[in-house]
Design a protein around this nucleic acid. Structure first.
Ligand code: MN
Ligand code: MN
Ligand code: MN
Ligand code: MN
Lengths: 220, 220
DNA sequence: GTCTATTTTTAGACAAATCTAAAAATTATT
DNA sequence: AATAATTTTTAGATTTGTCTAAAAATAGAC
């Protein structure tokens, strides 16, 4: 598999996560990969012939078992590298995605497993996403979105749903990071914004777009 | 610069090291890169137009100042990654070249500098090759090839000239590694082989091809 | 110096990934 | 059901790096 094919497989997997039947459309992939629908059509034909996807013209595409396995392995690599960049090299969580996007394509199973061991077999990456182990299995957690909490509810920030740089940098500014404790102190139904207590110390206001993209582990 | 262009620049730099006027021939590059002379000709035209090399048809090619700078930066990245693989992940020195060959192409200056800091700003890689610092300057050492020593001379192994996997693995088998102390106890002029004392403990015989590719720092 | 051998370049083709523009199929609207 | 809007595919080019085969230039032998 080329790097490009790998990125397509990842995109299909990622988009499929949000659908019922795992079926993905050409335009969705084009949008996600920032390329033309024509290029996607070409690639889908190729991935189909390699049996990495099940693809029928005009109907849509989904990953084959083989393709899914590859996707999990790529997520494993991507997330292990992100963990390395943050935990060992001192990058911030909003700086690592593009670099991991390159590192994930380095070919060496030995490298992945040694990196995993070096990091102490982490189960979650710096954004709270689960890291598949060497068998491709992932650990699930009970997590709820911040916008589903009610006044008085408390929790610990354990992940984010949106991964874009601006969002993550904005959370930095609000002192909202993995491990931060959050208590909802007020709800404003008008615009669905919240007032929260951060780490029991400072107050902050978060808009709906924010609260819809923060995962918490409820503590009360 | 694409990864391919980068590898050409590295190859030209590497071959030029062994020449008087830094001038490199098309066939030498083709051999080093395991590709055809025709492909090399094409690429030289391209690198010339980008002013990374000075190239005259039929005459040969050499790196421009700009190209040399790029080559040093690539060596820096390659050698830092090799150091990481050996010192942090526990790879053996004969296992890291192909992986570093991929890692060196990851684009991020911040990554290189953070990796450098994480490793403690090493001056030499696992094969004893100097690592250019962030300014591109390298540390030189007094080193001599093992085959230039005479009976009774002693030294510490600080590097290798040949980098191929089989050679390095062979040295592993002889217990010859970076830091190993070596004393020449006998010379056989017939085939220029040597008998040596390794770490003051065990004896070993090394052929000329070996002794011509081991760098020592003389201790007496 | 001429002839030969070697090196190097060009010519022409190919595979991978991309693009734009146009055609075809599907879906939505009336 | 016919028409309009959207999605998706094809057609045809382009870029990058590669190849083989043939031509041109250089270097070596006599
Ligand atoms: Mn990627
Ligand atoms: Mn992540
Ligand atoms: Mn390389
Ligand atoms: Mn090295």
């Amino acid at each position: 598999m080329t790097s490009t094919e790998e990125d397509y497989i990842k995109a299909i997997f990622s988009i499929a996560q949000g659908t019922a039947n795992r079926m993905v459309g050409t335009n969705d992939i084009a949008r996600e990969m920032d390329t033309s629908a024509a290029s996607v059509s070409d690639m889908l034909k190729k991935l189909n012939s390699k049996e990495l996807v099940i693809y029928e013209k005009y109907k849509g595409v989904r990953l084959s078992p083989n393709g899914t396995e590859r996707a999990m392995f790529l997520l494993r690599k991507h997330r292990l590298w992100e963990s390395f960049l943050v935990n060992k090299l001192g990058f911030a969580w909003d700086e690592v995605h593009d670099i991991a996007e390159q590192l994930e394509h380095v070919k060496s199973n030995e490298l992945v497993n040694k990196l995993d061991a070096f990091l102490g077999y982490p189960k979650f990456d710096p954004h709270g996403d689960p890291i598949p182990d060497s068998n491709g299995t992932i650990t699930l957690r009970n997590q709820v979105l911040l916008n589903t909490l009610e006044i008085g509810d408390e929790g610990t920030l354990i992940g984010v749903k949106m991964h874009n740089k601006d969002f993550l940098a904005h959370l930095n500014g609000l002192d909202l990071n993995i491990g931060t404790s959050i208590k909802v102190t007020e709800c404003f139904p008008f615009d669905n914004s919240l007032k929260i207590m951060v780490n029991g110390k400072s107050e902050a206001y978060v808009t709906e777009i924010i609260s819809k993209n923060i995962y918490l582990k409820k503590t009360s």
